[in-house]
Design a protein around this nucleic acid. Structure first.
Lengths: 175, 175
DNA sequence: GTCTATACTAGGATAGAC
DNA sequence: GTCTATCCTAGTATAGAC
């Protein structure tokens, strides 16, 4: 297999592991097993754990921003952005890596990624809405839904009321 | 010093370390140094790292819920809940521990804490607002502000537009 | 391009002294 | 109640074979 294919394969595995246990908890050993390669190969391919984690977060940002950038153009802004968001949250690993990145934004490397991600998503959303306040409300709503998804709220009846209320907000697009 | 005082002291240190590096990254060694005690003492006091981390998250939930439960009663719902939220985010460690907990909600223990936290905060807020949709919007807005604080958005001019738009939302209470 | 073997460090936990 | 010394496991990284 080519180096590039392996890289992607390992990044998938790394994103999956980071999603589950966070950056510090993600061992190159478990990532390697998940990818079906040896641990030293993972280290060698990326030059260490740190560069690997950086790559995981960068790719996450690109995917998040890309999802909104590629949003459909037909229909209202709420529909288009809502549809983009629905596509985004289908990739659970990306969503969880995003949450881990937010929590770890105190780290300069990661903070740069999350700020960049935030800024670009907001600019895209605001551009479509044509209104900063509405865009901020949309993003905030997305944040709430993100954490509800992370805590598996749909399968916990005691959160049903909040889930219903969140999904009913404008822009939730029936997700 | 009494066992109880030491417990609190270590919990403070643990919350601070977890806030910076996450649960997996928080070593009992660093926590001990932060608290000014020996590493074996930390382990001994809580019976291991896991119970210590559990205690950190439980205390975080109690503080978050308590802040809203103790919100002032004078003024409008937006003002009261906004004021409670402003008090909450003054404790940076609690805020960051909350974000780490969200990301780690896949873990059953932690998921239970975050869901409990979410449910109770939402019920308090919804009770004050008298409207689930408004309450959900308020919480979503809080989520957005949380991550903006985590990524130190105030000190990054390229996020000024988003910060301004978020702060201008109803309920932000000039935070 | 990928593995096995291995070196080295860090981290959690225990034993026992004070 | 608190420490020092220490054990053991896990985790990152390197060397070198295939």
């Amino acid at each position: 297999m080519s180096r590039e294919d392996r890289r992607e394969q390992i990044l998938d595995a790394a994103a999956h592991v980071v999603a589950q246990v966070g950056l510090a908890g993600a061992s190159t050993d478990v990532i390697a097993r998940e990818a079906g390669v040896s641990q030293p190969y993972v280290v060698r391919t990326f030059g260490g754990k740190q560069p690997l984690i950086d790559a995981v977060f960068s790719r996450m940002r690109d995917r998040v921003v890309g999802t909104f950038a590629d949003a459909p153009l037909d229909g209202s802004a709420v529909e288009c952005m809502g549809e983009a968001y629905v596509r985004l949250v289908r990739d659970r690993d990306t969503l969880l890596v995003l949450l881990h990145a937010f929590a770890a934004s105190g780290d300069p490397r990661i903070g740069e990624v999350t700020r960049d991600c935030m800024r670009r998503v907001f600019e895209i959303v605001a551009g479509r809405f044509g209104d900063d306040a509405e865009a901020a409300a949309f993003v905030g709503q997305g944040m709430l839904i993100n954490v509800l998804l992370a805590m598996d709220a749909e399968n916990h009846p005691d959160l049903a009321r909040l889930v219903t209320a969140s999904a009913a907000l404008p822009g939730a697009a029936g997700s």
